[in-house]
Amino acid sequence: MCLVGGCLKMKVLIAVSPSATTTSAASGGSPLMAFYEELGDLAVELAFLQDSVPLSQQVGDVDVIIPALSQVGADDINSAPNLKLIAQAGVGLDGVDIEAATRKNVYVTNVPYGSAVSMGELTIALMMLLSRKLNEAQANLRKGVFFLPLGSELGGKVLGLIGLGHSGKEAAKRAKSFDMTVLAVDKYHDHIHTPDVDFLGGTEQLDRVLTESDFVSLHCPLTEETRGIIGYGELCKMKPSAYLINIARAGLVQKEGCIRALKQRKIAGAGFDVFWEEPVPFDDELLQLDNVVLTPHIATSTAESRANNFAQVARNMKLVARGEKPEFCVNF
């Protein structure tokens, strides 16, 4: 952070290519517009990730890192003597070495609420595409077969949520408008209050959610505790007619067990927006399955979501520039 004309100026590295921060004018313009509007008089110098250069060699004079999907490790943090804030423009911090940041007195923040609506909406969208058998319908259209396949309605079905944070609550709210029953489990269930859930229990009630639900949707963070929480055994407890939805983190699901269950039709299918390797390799088994609906990590890719997230990052930058603790700080 330096003084320019008597005013503070912060250098910010957005750890993605410049094109990833823009959207078409038809979808609301760039999220950076909201970022600059919120910054007000705080001057910034923006830099973007150079893919061919290690991150540690790009942060020497950086005050703020917005990591996106990039890994920010101890070497990167130690190579940034001016670093004051690692501000995720979204929820996930599993790629950030929070302990290393804490040792260097660097704030780490996220935006737990900014993408919740977008994520809740995509959850419902995937459920609808699966229940109406979109893949088969598209194949029928190309073959000239009309009025098939026979799908099913969401009304009267059971949605099971694993994790009831912001995105889980938004999914529950929308599911109730379809006349669905909503079950949920969350580690912190005692502190959660929402009118949109018919049953809420602790993680020890996971089997109930698995066995009773027509759709099981993952909305929990990826931690050592939750990594691989859904494997072959858990999928076999689900109804053969049920679907698995994952818009959270791929690591919540054990890949080999999941693909095995899908191939064996232990469940009817799955809708995934996150993957074990991104971009997905063209020869990935998942791409060969006919009972999955896949989207390229777009749960938070709406103009409104990006604007919310970048505006919150700007608010936190202003707080840090004033010597104050930022909002939604996870390490201090």
Results as ranks from 00 to 15, higher is better:
E38I: 05
F178I: 07
K318V: 09
D186Y: 05
L161V: 01
A268S: 09
T295M: 12
I14M: 15
P81I: 07
D51R: 14
G269K: 09
D76P: 00
A242D: 01
N308Q: 12
A242F: 04
G201R: 05
H193I: 09
D63G: 11
K9A: 07
N316S: 05
I245Y: 02
L148Q: 12
F48H: 14
I77Y: 07
R174V: 02
D283I: 05
E256R: 04
F328N: 15
A80G: 14
G233E: 15
F147K: 12
L286F: 03
N110P: 12
L130Q: 09
A74Y: 08
K157C: 11
G231W: 02
Q288K: 15
P281K: 13
V330R: 06
N316C: 06
G151M: 12
P18Y: 04
G168V: 05
N135Q: 15
G28T: 09
E224V: 00
N291G: 10
G228V: 06
V293G: 01
T226V: 07
L154P: 09
F310V: 01
K263E: 13
A270Y: 01
A248H: 02
E99W: 01
L8N: 11
Q88A: 12
M180K: 04
E234W: 09
F328G: 03
T226F: 08
A248K: 03
L159Y: 06
P67L: 07
T181K: 15
V330M: 12
V53E: 11
F275I: 01
E324K: 14
N246T: 03
Y243Q: 03
A299G: 14
A89Y: 13
A137E: 05
M238P: 04
V158R: 10
Y36V: 08
K11H: 11
L183V: 00
L235W: 07
G156H: 10
Q254T: 10
G95C: 00
P279E: 07
G257P: 08
R103G: 15
L55V: 13
M128K: 09
M238N: 04
M33H: 12
P195Y: 06
E204P: 01
A242W: 08
E204K: 14
L134K: 00
V91W: 12
P326D: 00
L244P: 01
E38Y: 07
V117G: 03
S56T: 10
K84A: 13
S79E: 06
V293I: 14
N110S: 10
L130A: 05
S56L: 02
F147R: 13
S24T: 08
D41R: 11
I298P: 02
V313Q: 05
V197N: 04
P31S: 01
Y36T: 08
A171V: 05
Q138P: 03
V280Y: 12
T109D: 08
V44F: 11
A314N: 08
A89C: 13
T203L: 14
G201F: 04
